[in-house]
Design a binder for these strands. Structure first.
Lengths: 206, 206
DNA sequence: CCGCTCCTGTACCGCCGGTACGGTTTTCGG
DNA sequence: CCGAAAACCGTACCGGCGGTACAGGAGCGG
């Protein structure tokens, strides 16, 4: 009914924070049910096992991720007609959004799942792969659009450029966590932005 | 004495592979002692607890990592006098090295530790931070050297550029694992290499 | 009132990290 | 070659955790 969904969401909220902070293995079910105020039986009513919790967590995370990208780059395309300017603006907006997170980026579940555990089943690995492929399609389309209007100074594959967005995001998250410098992630994104601007700058300037 | 070190090394070898594949939490001590052929008592003779295993694992990994960078970029500097050419060559050599790994990069322990667990103590987090700072110093020095000879087309901070190397490596590892495409990591490194070449290209070409 | 969703309570299992501790073999310096 | 330290083995035990089984109950819509 309604109540069930609400409880399930509350479990997922608590679980997501715990998993991003401590890792999946270090997050105990006992701990989750204590914080959500339900019993162990209640937990297993919603999730068959921990693996299904991981799956639900990941799917919800990816959905939310896609929504954020839709919104930011959608807004960027509303503000700028030119595909290059829109993309650069999108990166800027994303960087600002990441800067405004008080404790830095909480971490990426996709990275957590694929870095940390081959303990998960193939289904989760496939969800992860699809998420990365969606990022590639999303940004790849943008780069292809840009390349229809601008000639890059160096021949680079649109898909590899698209992957670079994901790479910088995932790598920036890792680095800013390791360094304990939340600003590193948005900074790295801006460095990448400069590279993209440089790549599509017209050769004849003077 | 001598035998002790050998056994300890064997434990670390087995543990490193397991941790990179399944994550730290999912790697059981029972599993490690079974594969190394020792008993539980033997394990705890070498490591007080799992956290000390993690620490030893991380320190050894970082040492080895530094050695590899020393060798590759040392060789690159032997082959090219110019600091920019040497750096670009180093990236190329590194990319080729990563391409030659049959099953792709096994994963970065620094990323594993900092992504996955706030369950580790502060000591490990500090080791992680120092590793990232060492990368920054290493590549930052190279970029500063380059900037003494070349004027970048865009004003970028040498340390942020240095961090970009780590970002691309860590992000590339995550992405190639998520995509199950080992080639992504070396490819991303080459894309970054193109960006660096572009950044320091003289403006007046004709 | 029935039946379904959404739980609670209790009891239990096996794995795992970790402790304790006594005993044994191996190794190396003197 | 001897003795002592190093490098283990064996066994027993503990508590936490993931997971199972199952009985029961509260609330609510039809």
């Amino acid at each position: 009914m309604r109540k069930g969904e609400e409880t399930r969401t509350r479990i997922l909220d608590v679980a997501e924070a715990a998993v991003l902070a401590k890792g999946f293995g270090a997050t105990s079910i006992d701990e989750l049910i204590a914080e959500t105020g339900i019993t162990k039986s209640g937990f297993f009513y919603h999730f068959r096992d921990k693996n299904e919790l991981a799956k639900a967590l990941l799917e919800r995370y990816i959905e939310n991720d896609e929504r954020i990208y839709d919104e930011i780059f959608g807004r960027a395309h509303d503000l700028a007609d030119d595909p290059l300017q829109a993309f650069l603006l999108g990166l800027k907006l994303l960087s600002e959004l990441l800067s405004d997170l008080p404790n830095g980026h909480p971490g990426c579940l996709v990275a957590t799942m694929c870095t940390q555990e081959r303990a998960f089943d193939r289904e989760i690995q496939e969800i992860n792969r699809q998420a990365a492929l969606m990022w590639r399609r999303r940004f790849g389309a943008m780069f292809r659009d840009i390349m229809r209007h601008y000639r890059p100074r160096e021949a680079l594959d649109a898909d590899q450029l698209a992957d670079m967005v994901s790479t910088v995001l995932e790598g920036g998250i890792v680095l800013s966590k390791a360094l304990k410098e939340p600003k590193s992630l948005p900074d790295q994104l801006l460095v990448f932005r400069t590279f993209v601007r440089l790549l599509f700058q017209p050769i004849a300037q003077a």
